[in-house]
Design a binder for these strands. Sequence first.
DNA 1: CCCATTGACATTAACGTTAATGTTTGATAA
DNA 2: TTATCAAACATTAACGTTAATGTCAATGGG
Lengths: 330, 330
Amino acid sequence: MTVKKNVRLIDIAQRLDLTANTVSRALRDKSDIGEETKELVRKTASEMGYIPNTIASSLRKGSSKTIAIVFDNLINPYFMIMADKIHRKLEPLNYATMIFAGSNGRLGSKQLIPIVSRKVDAIITFLEPTKKTLELLNKNDIPIILVGRVNQSLKVDSISTKDYEGAYQIGKLFVSKGSKECGYIGAPISVECSQRRMSGFKQGIIDSGGTVSDQNLRYMNDELIIEDVECLLKQNVDSIFCFNDMMALEVYSLLQNKGIKVPEEVKVAGFDNLRKEFTIPINLTTIDTDKDGIIDLAVDTLLTKIKSKSELSIPRYINFDVQLIEGDTT
Amino acid sequence: MTVKKNVRLIDIAQRLDLTANTVSRALRDKSDIGEETKELVRKTASEMGYIPNTIASSLRKGSSKTIAIVFDNLINPYFMIMADKIHRKLEPLNYATMIFAGSNGRLGSKQLIPIVSRKVDAIITFLEPTKKTLELLNKNDIPIILVGRVNQSLKVDSISTKDYEGAYQIGKLFVSKGSKECGYIGAPISVECSQRRMSGFKQGIIDSGGTVSDQNLRYMNDELIIEDVECLLKQNVDSIFCFNDMMALEVYSLLQNKGIKVPEEVKVAGFDNLRKEFTIPINLTTIDTDKDGIIDLAVDTLLTKIKSKSELSIPRYINFDVQLIEGDTT
DNA sequence: CCCATTGACATTAACGTTAATGTTTGATAA
DNA sequence: TTATCAAACATTAACGTTAATGTCAATGGG
């Protein structure tokens, strides 16, 4: 059994009667190393099974080639899809992806410590950062981008979708399909984009001549969606728009269990169009969001920021266009 | 604006007229530091906003407080659930979680490079490692554990479920519910646990007096599950057991679209009981696997291995008990 | 009263890599 | 010919932390 000792630059250097620095520069294809030397170094490194020590490199360079993703719950197809897209985009660029959890819907400064201490190059978050978090990140020169939760009061680059417009279309659709009384089940009241969807939905209904009473616009609490559904049914609601597809699926499932026919008796719609990336056994009416476009822009923005550090710019808030997808539930 | 400069141990030390080493030891509550000094250091560190540099610490200590998870596709509720459980367990222990992708169902030595070079403390993989991978990990003293894909020919600790027994129960159930001709849609032929499930399923049917012809035991290719379903239907199959719940959901969905009634005309069953952790709008008949138990054991095993490095032991292959969950699809 | 002990801190070096700077050799231009 | 320059490598130090070792004064025992 060979001795378990990692091959280092200096081991290659000694074998070739060079210095560690020369080997390092040769492997990184720097211009002041001779072509034959480079070739020889590459060959020897490969033979000796050299694997670079990213930790040492990170310490010296101050960049870890790592990106942090922060969400509140991994068990959520939306986050999963986004994480997958992020990972796929970063891997070929030799960036590793770390996952972190927020706490009660926020990225607080406390959860930030393990992230900052690991010197990640950037952060993609699906949770609103607190002010303290942003200060800390600014102090540590770590770029961040917020995806899906635009909040103009936060001084942070954000990318999301046209929540209002998408929800507006659902509202119009419900009415055009004959819905007399519409209902909405949203995310907790603190989630701004849920508010926007609610407003758009309401306006869409009104503009189409439909009705929706404010008591039928609900915020989910404690994940007890069944209570919301039953409450809406008591109000004789005949269409339910949900904050996202997963909630819509739950609602659909609950209605099925009650023997209520969808869409004949109650129409259901969601938001996100998970079906594009994910197996969903129901052809839900939903709003397609350009997830690829969002992630592409998010990652590209971060990469740009990583390169040109310290240049704090005015935060940009970008909203991607959405598209109505009519399924079998309306 | 304050100068953007991270606070280091030496900054705290200078402020208190101590050395960096003393500060380091004080913060880590070592015994050779006076109690008042410790208190003072902690207070000062907090005031100055000190955040430890894990990179530097990792380089010195040779351990990065990071675990790598490797799967082939993030967009899969099973992996997602497992990743979530792993993350939840590791976070309180100050371990970070990195995600990596394999390639065509394997963890090859090529995909290993970014993992090894980042000096992760251990690896949890859902993909079979190649021999070369195992050699490389052994050389680099990185413990690994394989979850869900036990393969006795691989010299690697593995944790999985009693595939044969679970599938056996499904076979028995199908026959007892009146199925005359059973079918199976498995994972690609290279996946050993799919083979085990097939065997158990077959035996369960036979032992119950049912029939299953070998042409109705299929391996999925290229994700074209619809072809498998249609092929089985042509053979007048009246029950379909799928490798996992997601495939079962797809099959269910396809049957629905064809107007075939489940379970009256065709019964469907899966494996994993995703419904325990994940919103699924269908109450699928499935096999519950003790995911919590599996992850608990996997992580605990790894943590033990991290502490007692270099002690290569005989690989252990553990299979957790399973439990039949009867849903509405049988 | 002297030596051994110990508590509390300091000093030094090392982890592996890389940026900044230095050195040597040979070729080129004046 | 000689100063100039560039190519190709070497030397040095630094990134921030921590293990190993060293120092020193106060304490206790005989």
